[in-house]
Design a protein around this nucleic acid. Structure first.
Lengths: 335, 335
DNA sequence: TTGTACGCGTTATCAG
DNA sequence: CTGATAACGCGTACAA
């Protein structure tokens, strides 16, 4: 059916071994021979069979992308950045969406599906249990984490604790003393998620300001708009004295805005609102936020993967800066 | 390194051929034998090498997803729906993001990259030139189009012309007679994009209402918020008499809202705004829209692919309904 | 119902 | 620098 390496070899008057070497740019080929092979291959429109290449070489030229979501802002943009970089380097991207249901549980990662299918793994914004991490490690392929990532692994991310503390600092500076929080729900069985780090950063900054880290002012949600709204409803029912709500992601903050609007509360006159991410629609909605570059993180993560595949020693990762972006959703509390 | 079919055969006391048959559920295996093989395979944690399977069988159990974007609302949700369905059926999903740059051009699809790599193709929201379509056809794999799709091909989509006409009808019914439009830019060299169909539907409904399809009231953009805003700016400069703006996607409508806000124009008092899609944040922004189910379209598209791969004759496609969703961004024009 | 042996299309090893 | 040839791991006629 398709034209194979043998056809090229015949057309170029050389052996299949030479064709293989010439096409892959190995140095042990005379330039004239290589040119002849290249010409023949182009003329025949030859494309090597990926399956055969994988079987013989042991490499798939494919990177697996593990993510709990495609549509959420952070994941969509990371994937976009990573895919672009990987494809430019000639790698295929295999998409594994391990969607979490409403209860924040998801099917455990099945390492069998990944076996011999990918050269490397990019884990995007997904807390992974120790058990899952171990089974993934047994795949013996380089792994890079973006956003969430276990300690000791190559990880690309914003500094969650510092960024979170800065957000609280801004609210405190405005004079807020009753700051409600819609935190990301800590994933099951995981102690190192961004949700945890952001909560820690916020708590520390509250403490530094002499404010209590009152559990009554904290609710958790699943990083979605709907979850953020539900959490805001619970929070406002219990603690109507809050003058500001800090949601640990923009999408959750959008939910907070929805709930405030439904209750007839005005932003920022009655309640200030802040998020994290730098979502594209934050400007239109006037949402103050701590912005991060998700697409860039995807690209850098992909670059780390590529250098690991090239045999270079993996660094510990990269920390991205976050940019404070004040907008009209925040103001000093009413006197 | 990994355990192979031979190990399983030895452990089960049968030949590799029997292992292959047993594991794939072929009927020509005694039940007792099959059980023994299954047990051995499970005990050894055996997973067939995808490369070897592909090479021997000619099938890759992989579907290619071609899309111009991952982060845009429609594409993100279609991909999510399709990925879920395909993975549930045991298929891998290869992601090909053929990003368009600002000038709406993108790299031509390279069929070489797809050769022998996928069993089928899902083209998501991407107008394809005739030349590209032809080169894709030469891959000889089933193709399904979601959103945009050439005539005569299996296509899953909302009825663009009808939905678009309905939007115009709603504005006309409210009393608007100067309706500006931010249309999707027709892709280069393509006459059958949703952008074209939506424009046609709108023009026909305007005509039916006795209103002119005034080119001065029409601008084109690239289906993004930024593009929508720029188009709105041009439109408002040229035709300040418009009392309503119909953007052919919600994301472009968001850009229209941005531009109106920047000019101090109020929605809907000064200008009504409508979009198409049913974007998640439409509720918060109060944007009236003609909503469609993108995730569902992805799932149905995947189902069509699966049945085509199962050898069933491909139907012509599926048309999804669109739901008129009035919100506070529309009102009667000022007297 | 099961086993044997060949083929799938490359890469890699080893002579030459 | 180049050419045979043996893997690579599995599917599948064909024979038993």
């Amino acid at each position: 059916m398709g034209t194979g390496i043998e056809d090229v070899a015949r057309a170029a008057g050389v052996s299949t071994a030479t064709v293989s070497r010439a096409l892959r740019g190995l140095p042990t080929v005379r330039e004239e021979t290589r040119a002849r092979v290249l010409r023949a291959a182009a003329a025949l429109n030859y494309v090597p069979s990926p399956s055969a290449v994988s079987l013989a070489s042991g490499r798939t030229r494919t990177v697996g992308l593990l993510t709990p979501s495609i549509a959420r802002w952070f994941h969509a943009h990371v994937i976009e950045g990573a895919e672009r970089t990987l494809r430019a380097a000639g790698f295929d991207v295999l998409l594994y969406a391990l969607e979490a249901d409403a209860s924040m549980t998801r099917a455990a990662i099945d390492p069998g599906v990944l076996r011999r299918r990918v050269d490397a793994l990019l884990v995007v914004g997904m807390p992974v249990t120790d058990a899952e991490l171990e089974s993934l490690s047994e795949l013996c392929v380089p792994m890079v984490f973006i956003g969430a990532g276990p300690p000791g692994r190559a990880r690309v991310h914003m500094d969650d604790a510092v960024g979170s503390a800065a957000v609280v600092g801004e609210l405190v500076a405005l004079g807020h003393r009753h700051i409600g929080q819609v935190q990301g729900a800590p994933a099951r069985n995981v102690t190192w998620s961004p949700a945890v780090e952001r909560a820690r950063g916020a708590a520390e900054r509250l403490g530094a300001a002499g404010l209590p880290d009152d559990p009554a002012l904290v609710e958790a949600a699943d990083f979605t708009t709907a979850g953020g709204r539900a959490a805001a409803a619970r929070l406002l029912d219990r603690a109507p004295q809050v003058t500001a709500v800090y949601a640990h992601s923009d999408e959750m903050a959008f939910g907070v805005l929805e709930e405030l609007g439904a209750r007839g509360l005005r932003v920022p006159e009655d309640v200030s609102v802040v998020g994290i991410d730098g979502h594209d629609l934050g400007g239109l909605l006037g949402l103050a936020t701590m912005a991060q570059d998700a697409t860039g993180q995807g690209a850098v993560g992909a670059t780390l993967i590529l250098s690991a595949l090239a045999g270079e020693p993996a660094g510990p990762g990269v920390v991205f800066p976050a940019t404070w972006t004040p907008r009209r959703s925040i103001a000093a509390p009413r006197a």
